[in-house]
Design a binder for these strands. Sequence first.
DNA 1: ACCCGTGATGGCACTTGGTGTCATCACCGT
DNA 2: ACGGTGATGACACCAAGTGCCATCACGGGT
Lengths: 186, 186
Amino acid sequence: MARWQPDACGRIQEAAYALYAERGYDATTISDIAERAGLTKRTYFRHFPDKREVLFWGSEALEELFVGGVTDAPPSASPLAAIGIALDAVGEMFAERREFATVRHGIIQATPELQERERIKLARLAESVAVALRGRGVGDPAAILAAEAGMAVFHVAFARWIADADRSLQDLAREALAELRAIASA
Amino acid sequence: MARWQPDACGRIQEAAYALYAERGYDATTISDIAERAGLTKRTYFRHFPDKREVLFWGSEALEELFVGGVTDAPPSASPLAAIGIALDAVGEMFAERREFATVRHGIIQATPELQERERIKLARLAESVAVALRGRGVGDPAAILAAEAGMAVFHVAFARWIADADRSLQDLAREALAELRAIASA
DNA sequence: ACCCGTGATGGCACTTGGTGTCATCACCGT
DNA sequence: ACGGTGATGACACCAAGTGCCATCACGGGT
């Protein structure tokens, strides 16, 4: 056996999304996913470390985009301004993936266990953004605070974008960022 | 059997903390904890829903304190000011529990699985704080943004407080809050 | 003093997530 | 034709978590 299988990770991911969306995360076993992808449970675990992680495959792209946006922002930009520039790039990327993002968001919102993973992914992303901010000369409590505040902005903007098709993610992010500034200066 | 057992939750919690601290979270089974607490695995699950939750028992007190602090802040206080007042009360409470908080923090920081739970607890706390802020008349994107920013402030202040015994949690929180304000107005 | 309802526990079987190990097969270079 | 490499299937195994039922202590009522 072991005939070459084109893009095992991709096929697993498709199967997992389909089953999680159809019958729910809890009602789906890894053997179900594996069977649908045409392989075994053991092979699933050779591609993903656990049951949740398949939903977060490809999120390195988001991290690269976010960190890259912060790093490449003009040196004169303040921490929050740099994050705003990064959020523009992130919003642009999600615009082409609205359908996918909506399905994924629905699956995650339906399962507390998945929300945990989502939250810690956001926290890790905040740490990466904080590193990028330190690379811009931002000091130490400030870098992580700005990064985490940026994640909050992203989070609320994203949720509104999923619920409301009319406005672009970039717009919603800019609005949330302005709101954050208003809060802090009050 | 089933003689009355004084404070089963408390005994389980003590056993779990001891074992998690000694040999680590992954190397501890629920049967180990149950045995040390003088009961069975099945009974453990009658008191806690899973292996992690025992570390978060009693965190309703933190939520009550935080939400109460925000709710009872003077009506004139801005969202961040209200959170600052709440953080004062929270810091005061932790001052009497520094030893316990340090052990707990060490266990959690050593295990990614526990950090996930910690993060989502913080997110739920942010939601409760946001509700309290809405009760003060704060609008909707602002309430959750202020609450999440407040969690970031609490998080960094807490981490510094654990690492550095010299300063009070209240001081560190005030400093982080000032830092957040500086970031947002830059 | 006896009996009964209630609540907490032990014990057991079972499903599922996750891992270690080994044999097998396709592919590739020599 | 041969051997090495890498991916897979198959199997055994451990631990988390759940359902189910029997059992015991306790308190109240008769």
